[in-house]
Amino acid sequence: MNLTLRIWRQRNAQERGSLVSYEAKDISPDMSFLEMLDVVNERLIAKGEEPVAFDHDCREGICGMCSLVINGLAHGGRRATTTCQLHMRHFKDGDVITVEPWRSRAFPVVRDLVVDRTAFDRVIHAGGFVSSNAGGAPDANALPVPRDDAEKAMDAAACIGCGACVASCPNGSAMLFVAAKVSHLAHLPQGHPERAQRVLGMVHQMDLEGFGNCTNHTECEAVCPKEVSISHIAKMNREFIRASVLEA
């Protein structure tokens, strides 16, 4: 099939960018979206033009590196699908496809479709861990964890940190990402000793990074490739209230 792509091109963080149109001819429906971009890039290289820069790595939907807004929807908006597993069979011959980077003040564009997501790392630095040095752990079965709690923790821990939640939120909010980590550790007894400082620290850092706040649009949940539920945001809100009211 033949497509028209409108792709955001931006040389670096300082210069202004703009949408540039490219013709993508003879695209196979079996290609993934990124393989389609590979083909477009190969042709650009052949013409001596600079290929489009985009983040990608595992190409099996787990590393969280790929990050494209396709026709206004993060990862293209298909249920439980990252950009790397989105296939061209979902498009039609003659389609015009607009490809943009994640847009958020906290995720500045590095080049073309590549953004800087280190804000997420800094939020984790602020408490998204259990302080447990290697070597001193008790036997793994010493602390039973109810199966339901383990499953709920896993539901939250499935987050791949891609940032689609931020990209899709009309407020550029990172609540789903932060909540996934807070909720994962709040559901496990191992996370309890540090639960108050964790949620306070991470929310504080989230605000400092310039993410927006949650007005319950629930777009984040709809585009999340790992289907992380907004129930974790409610859980984080509870954790936050608890910590703010009760802790010294």
Binding site: R6, T218, V223
Partner: peptide
């Protein structure tokens, strides 16, 4: 704060559930 968090709008605005 929310307006500041998304200084550059998307060229194509689309939503799924909001």
């Amino acid at each position: 704060l929310n307006r500041a968090a998304r200084p550059e709008p998307y060229a194509v605005e689309a939503h799924l559930v909001t």
